[in-house]
């Protein structure tokens, strides 16, 4: 069976994110489904938060999860609609391994008239060994 690509075009997404915060952080598209999206954040020295140990700062991981989750909402909607992050909660289960690419997967599990609910995980190679878990909500701003 061919995968459901809905209205999402990964090439168009990457073209659109060639400016601004996402592009400066170096996000890369990895995969998506009907209600989820996976992006990658390659390791970079200028994004370190703990210089002694070379661990990535938590900020770029938060931005990665925000972006992947926002994308998951658009995928579940099957269309593009203006939205803003209402809140985002992130549990840092363990530090990211120095040198490794962080992979963030966001999933939209429920959409109401005004709100989209998301959850996600970040890992650095093994999905069964996550480094962060997130939960959040987005609000549609065109109401």
């Amino acid at each position: 069976m061919t995968p459901d690509l809905t209205a999402f075009d990964s090439a168009a997404f990457m073209a659109a994110s060639r400016s601004g915060h996402s592009s400066f952080l170096g996000f890369e598209y990895r995969a998506h489904g009907a209600d989820w999206a996976e992006l990658a954040l390659p390791y970079r020295a200028d994004l370190i938060g703990e210089p002694e140990r070379g661990v990535l700062a938590s900020g770029p991981i938060l931005a990665l999860m925000d972006t992947a989750s926002a994308l998951a909402v658009q995928l579940k909607l099957g269309t593009s609609r203006p939205q803003a992050t209402l809140d985002l909660r992130i549990d840092y289960v363990r530090p990211a391994s120095p040198g490794k690419t962080v992979i963030g997967r966001g999933e939209c599990y429920c959409i109401t008239r005004a709100i989209a609910f998301v959850r996600g995980t970040a890992h650095d190679g093994d999905p069964d060994d996550p480094l962060a878990n997130v939960a959040g909500t987005f609000m549609f701003t065109d109401l």
Binding site: S19, G20, H21, S22, F24, L25, A57, S58, G59, P60, L62, A63, L64, M65, D66, T67, A84, T85, L88
Partner: peptide, 22 residues
Amino acid sequence: ADIVLGRPGFLHGGAIGGFLEV
């Protein structure tokens, strides 16, 4: 600046969150 830009004219939520963490 461009480095913290989200949708045109607005800060990226991830950049705001990262700034709050700092």
